[in-house]
Amino acid sequence: MPNTARWAATLTLTATAVCGPLAGGAHAAPDSVSPGLYAPSALVLTVGHGYSAATATPERAATLNCAPTASGTHPAAIKACAELRAYGGDFDALPDRDGAMCTKQFSPVVVTAVGVWQGKRVSYEHTFANECVKNSSGMSVFTF
């Protein structure tokens, strides 16, 4: 897939993830809490093989919306949102899982997160040596 098409797909997913929760009925129930009270936290997460996002082909993608409630296509959205909240949305601060044993095989895997976290734009990219190393890092956020 050409880079232009990949970026177009990523931007479309990001717009859907960010703007989707904001669209809704014009009338809210009197006892409901307005979604406008929360800073948006909506991300598009991708995983692909390659050295960088510019050269990698995205193989999997998931949306993760964390405000006002956890939702999206991420299989463990509640857990992933809780982990990101615990570390202030800092992907680099997410701890490694204990006890992971990985080979030293070099087959680079790149992960990205694009969107907003608590109202601030996020653009994160990290390359791991292989899939095992990726799965042992960052808790459940990039495990999908």
Rank of each mutant, 00 (worst) to 15 (best):
M1A: 13
P2W: 12
A5N: 13
A5P: 00
R6C: 06
R6W: 06
A8M: 10
T10I: 13
L11Q: 13
T12Q: 13
T12H: 06
L13I: 03
L13D: 12
V18M: 13
C19N: 07
P21R: 10
L22N: 08
A23N: 07
A23P: 03
G25D: 01
G25M: 02
A26Y: 05
A28M: 15
P30M: 12
D31T: 15
D31F: 08
S32A: 15
G36T: 14
G36K: 12
G36R: 08
L37Y: 14
A39M: 15
P40Q: 05
P40F: 10
A42L: 11
V44Y: 09
V44R: 01
T46E: 15
G48N: 13
H49P: 01
G50P: 04
S52N: 11
A53W: 15
A53T: 13
A56V: 05
T57D: 12
E59D: 14
T63A: 05
T63Y: 04
T63M: 05
L64W: 00
L64D: 01
L64R: 07
N65L: 09
A67N: 12
P68K: 01
P68V: 03
T69V: 05
T69F: 15
A70E: 02
S71F: 01
T73K: 12
T73I: 08
P75W: 11
A76H: 14
A76K: 15
I78V: 09
I78N: 05
K79W: 02
A80R: 02
C81M: 06
C81W: 04
C81R: 08
E83H: 08
E83W: 12
R85H: 06
A86M: 08
Y87K: 09
Y87A: 06
G89K: 02
G89C: 00
D90M: 12
F91K: 04
D92M: 09
L94H: 14
L94M: 15
P95I: 05
P95T: 05
D96K: 15
R97F: 14
D98Q: 10
M101P: 04
C102V: 01
C102M: 09
F106Q: 11
S107I: 00
P108G: 01
V109E: 06
V109M: 14
V110D: 04
T112S: 07
V114M: 12
G115V: 06
W117K: 02
K120G: 03
K120T: 01
R121L: 13
V122L: 03
V122G: 00
S123R: 04
Y124A: 00
E125S: 13
T127A: 06
T127I: 04
T127V: 04
F128Y: 15
E131I: 03
K134Q: 12
K134E: 14
K134H: 09
N135Q: 06
S136N: 13
S137P: 08
S137H: 15
G138F: 12
M139Q: 14
S140Q: 13
V141R: 05
V141H: 11
F144W: 08
